[in-house]
């Protein structure tokens, strides 16, 4: 369905590392692409595939949107009581360091 004659033609879906000739290969290379980890020639073929294949372009955009959406998930803040306890421990350690003779931790 994706094919317009230039893409989607697999190497008979031969097993092996993902390759840029097929959509299934492109999908598996998306992260390497976004991480800029593809060799220059592979990267060029990857981008050529995207130029010809709307579905893979959509897929790439959805991966990007997923990453952005994940970035909006709330981070897990420390509980106030825990933070207070740790800051207190930190404070007394700093004090003890400044006054090695005095009581401290």
């Amino acid at each position: 369905m994706s094919s317009d004659g230039t893409v989607g033609r697999g190497s008979e879906a031969s097993p092996g590392p993902p390759d840029t000739a097929t959509c299934v290969g492109v999908v598996e290379l998306v992260t390497e692409y976004l991480e800029d980890a593809l060799e220059p020639d592979v990267r060029a073929r990857f981008e050529a595939h995207l130029d010809d294949c709307e579905e893979c372009e959509v897929y790439l955009e959805q991966m990007r949107a997923t990453i952005v959406a994940a970035g909006r998930v709330d981070v897990e803040h420390v509980a106030p009581a825990t933070l207070d306890r740790l800051v207190a421990a930190y404070r007394s350690a700093v004090r003890a360091r400044r006054n090695p003779g005095a009581n401290g931790v």
Binding site: M1, G10, T22, C23
Partner: peptide, 16 residues
Amino acid sequence: FLAPGDEWAGGWAVPP
């Protein structure tokens, strides 16, 4: 994806 043996094997069968 289209299965091995298909003319367009490895292309999208059910696109995103």
